[in-house]
């Protein structure tokens, strides 16, 4: 069965960039984009053990009557059959439930229409919530439509990074695009990371897929990010630390997204590698 990507449509120029990004992503990876055109400013997603309410701002409700035509036009240009979802269930009369059986979801970095916020500020709280609870990876689009021609995985050795690495291998296989791995060495030697890969039986897929493994021994993490190809899709795992911990130590995800404007694909802590 084909994988599905959920896209929340916003009928504004910025929303158009996001949709273009989704369409490109889907086309590269043979995924079926499913578009939700919001009719209310909020919706619920029931995940395994949590329910997440996502509040949109009013810009998402702009001229809903033209939305379908515009989406259809954009999709047909890329020869993709548009498909839409209409929520069947409502928790309250203005609170629809969206199904969660998707394989990817696309979000702008912040669900706000102010371009100043969308810039490289920080990841919006709502988006952060989705990442924390979703069992699918989230595609955080770059501010404007940007094609990517290779895949870069950030690998720090943790369980989530492994998930992201597997995801990267899969994407690279489907899209036939080269794969780079970036690792910031923190006290460990490259061998430690290679051993982790070995322990997880990933050596074969590593050798099949990889173009280059970059190790950074020195320098600040942010500065090293310059070496990430500007036209790469960046795949990384997120840890889902609490807010306080993040304020104290800062999060890699936040640093990466604030430094580079690439498209990010984030595998959250609940992301489960499907068969």
């Amino acid at each position: 069965m084909r994988s599905k990507l959920l896209h929340i449509f916003r009928n504004t120029p910025l929303g158009r960039e996001t949709l273009f990004q989704s369409i490109y992503f889907c086309k590269q990876l043979n995924i079926l984009p499913v578009v939700y055109i919001p009719r209310f400013t909020k919706f619920l997603m029931y995940f395994e053990n949590d329910v997440v309410q996502i509040d949109l701002d009013d810009s998402y409700l702009t001229s809903a009557d033209t939305a379908i035509d515009r989406i259809t036009a954009m999709m047909e240009q890329e020869e993709i059959q548009p498909s839409f979802i209409e929520p069947q269930n409502f928790t309250a009369s203005t609170l629809p439930d969206l199904p969660t059986d998707f394989d990817f979801m696309c979000c702008p970095r912040s669900m706000s229409d102010l371009s100043s916020k969308i810039g490289l500020g920080h990841i919006g709280t709502k988006v952060r919530w989705i990442i924390k609870y979703a069992h699918f990876p989230i595609l955080l689009t770059s501010p404007v439509f940007k094609k990517w021609k290779s895949i870069t995985v950030f690998f720090g050795g943790s369980a989530n990074a492994l998930k992201a690495l597997r995801l990267g291998f899969r994407l690279s296989k489907i899209s036939k695009m080269p794969l780079d791995i970036f690792t910031q060495l923190e006290e460990n030697s490259p061998e430690v990371y290679k051993q982790i890969i070995k322990d997880e039986d990933l050596e074969d897929s590593l050798n099949q897929n990889i173009r280059k493994w970059h190790f950074f021994e020195s320098g600040k993490f942010e500065n090293n990010l310059y070496h990430v190809p500007h036209d790469a899709l960046v795949v990384l795992g997120a840890y889902g630390y609490g807010l306080i911990k993040e304020m104290l130590f800062g999060s890699k995800m936040e640093k990466i997204q604030a430094t580079i404007s690439n498209n990010l694909l984030i595998a959250g802590p609940k992301y489960f590698v499907s068969k």
Binding site: T41, K42, Q53, D55, T91, A92, S93, T94, L95
Partner: peptide, 10 residues
């Protein structure tokens, strides 16, 4: 950002 009403149906 919650709906109105008494909530029992919810």
């Amino acid at each position: 950002k919650d709906g109105a009403g008494h909530g029992v149906p919810e």
